[in-house]
């Protein structure tokens, strides 16, 4: 029933789309992760100055569609002298949009560490930097991996929107194939399968990371205990 040969014939378009989706997602997500970190760090470093602006930024990311942001960058940018190619607008759009969500995820992770731990660390004469690197970040990492994985998955799916600002990504090229061959099901299903595969990979990666982080501390302690017992 399904015409698999059609997909094979159109493999060049599909691979080109896959490549564009992949690199734009990758760069966009990296930008989102790092910009989110900067926003969260600013808010923590100087709450009085940065809490309000960062909170506003987060609310804006949550409240407006990514499509609007992409249109603002791609079509609105030139009127303030900011001319971006469609793919760059895609990367920047995904980055700016995701940053708001990641800033909130990092903050949530940071806030969930009991204050008592830090006070105890200070009492023990552990420097603030040491406490951050050895006490706060390892615990935070474990907490923020699951929501970050979720958010990355959302960003990969939302990256389909860059096809609307004329990037030749998976979705756009699937539509091109539909228009050329008048076959609807095969191209869209093939591309849906590829998205699903990408998302599955992100989910698996997140899960593996989560397990590794969860294992790290007990193993470390367990090793020490063993050494002690053996010695």
């Amino acid at each position: 029933m399904l015409d698999i040969a059609l997909i094979w014939e159109m493999r060049d378009l599909i691979l080109q789309g896959l490549w564009n989706t992949l690199w734009i997602c990758l760069l966009g997500c990296l930008l989102a992760l790092s910009l989110g970190l900067v926003l969260a760090a600013l808010r923590l470093a100087n709450p009085r100055l940065f809490s309000y602006p960062v909170a506003c930024y987060v609310e804006i990311c949550r409240g407006i569609p990514l499509l609007i942001l992409l249109f603002l960058l791609y079509y609105g940018g030139p009127s303030i002298g900011l001319t971006l190619s469609a793919s760059v607008a895609g990367v920047v759009g995904i980055g700016l949009y995701g940053a708001g969500y990641f800033a909130e995820i990092y903050r949530g992770g940071f806030k969930s560490i009991p204050k008592g731990q830090l006070e105890a660390a200070r009492m023990l004469g552990i420097s603030p930097w040491h406490a951050l690197v050895r006490i706060q970040i390892p615990q935070m990492a474990r907490l923020i991996v699951p929501p970050s994985t979720n958010q990355l998955i959302i960003l990969v799916k939302e990256s389909a929107l860059i096809s609307i600002i004329s990037v030749d990504d998976l979705t756009k090229n699937a539509t091109t194939i539909v228009n050329q061959t008048f076959q609807v099901i095969e191209p869209y299903l093939a591309v849906a399968l590829l998205y699903w595969l990408m998302i599955e990979l992100v989910a698996r990666g997140g899960y593996a990371l989560e397990k590794r982080l969860a294992n790290r501390q007990p193993r470390h302690i367990a090793q020490k205990d063993n050494a002690h017992a053996n010695g």
């Binding site: 799916k157 699937a174 998205y195």
Partner: peptide, 14 residues
Amino acid sequence: GTPILLQLLLVYYL
């Protein structure tokens, strides 16, 4: 697990 834009196009054309 798939982008909503793709779902929309699939439904609309299918």
